[in-house]
Design a protein around this nucleic acid. Sequence first.
DNA 1: GGCCAACTAGATAGATCGCTCTAGCGGTAG
DNA 2: CTACCGCTAGAGCGATCTATCTAGTTGGCC
Lengths: 199, 199
Amino acid sequence: MAPNPKAGNTKSRILDATAELFMRYGYTGTGLKQIVADANAPFGSLYHHFPGGKQELGVEVIHRSGAMYLELVMGVVDAAPDPVSGVRDCFSGAAEVLRATDYADACPIETIALEVASSNEPLREATAQVFESWIVGASARFRAAGVDEQTGRALAIMLITLLEGAFVLCRASRTTEALEAAGETAATIVDAALRGCAT
Amino acid sequence: MAPNPKAGNTKSRILDATAELFMRYGYTGTGLKQIVADANAPFGSLYHHFPGGKQELGVEVIHRSGAMYLELVMGVVDAAPDPVSGVRDCFSGAAEVLRATDYADACPIETIALEVASSNEPLREATAQVFESWIVGASARFRAAGVDEQTGRALAIMLITLLEGAFVLCRASRTTEALEAAGETAATIVDAALRGCAT
DNA sequence: GGCCAACTAGATAGATCGCTCTAGCGGTAG
DNA sequence: CTACCGCTAGAGCGATCTATCTAGTTGGCC
């Protein structure tokens, strides 16, 4: 199946390096030269694995990072004793990561989403698909907890909105004040929704 | 005082064009050539008015756009009969603008803030100052309405967080779903804070 | 061994980037 | 009128960007 045992190694190194660079410097702010340098990959390999160039690489990174981030967050939620503290853990965990990485590692696709929203339709579509998958994933959990469909979806959107919005303020100010406030609000509205359906 | 009656005209045209381009395509995504083209200004004028180049222009645009946006939002709030409906008007107004501009005109500095947070310290500082001025401006209003200092600041941060977060989702998805949900949540938490202090 | 496909490796093209430079225009002052 | 100054005007610089192109290497299969 794998003609070359090293096959896929270079490709995934490129994807990893690209994901990190995009998260920190954005799509237009990241050069292909820098990507192959960080990935320890030759320039030619990039266009071998991604014939569509930077845009194809971008689409793949968006989907991959989006899926990984969803998995990460769901893991945190599942590890918590209840949904409310699970949500709280997500926000405090995000704050911790932010502090530990000098306020660089926040949402892997937020910066790209804003950059390409009005300039690159394929990439915009990819970011929209990722956000929608997060909304669907989160609202499925709420539905399982007894929240009705509409409320669950609105709740999921609010959590993502709070997280993304807080990331902007935190990265700009180099504090975690907004994430802490957002975590409180998130816990409050989730608690209210769960109590509302438990009646 | 003004040796040339046209003085300042070109400069403000450059600033206006830059503000719009930065809002839509970001800092790195906007070229100086495109700026002077959109501003109908000669290239030389750009470096005459902004000797510091793109970075100096960026700092000035961030502060200018930040102040204008604060004024705009405060105007909407002041026109409303009460704080809660004022907040609601802000979110629905933002949604309307977004739809009218093909999901291009959202927050004038959000995209820049994320782009430069880890790559350009002077610009990052400028975005942080703007956000802080918004927080201070909004919390002053809440303080005037009887909310205590700490609650007012947290409330202001949450409103900005909700607005910025919703902008990300709305521009990516080309819908105003997130802004509508965020507007509801914003109205709810403002109402709760006002009721809390009115007791 | 010989062969093919997958992959690595990097030089290089063509366009665009931010930025610098000099020349010229128009109004004011002496 | 001449001298000066704020500003306009755009050609052009070196650097960097994305993308292409050719050559070399590797490993499995007949």
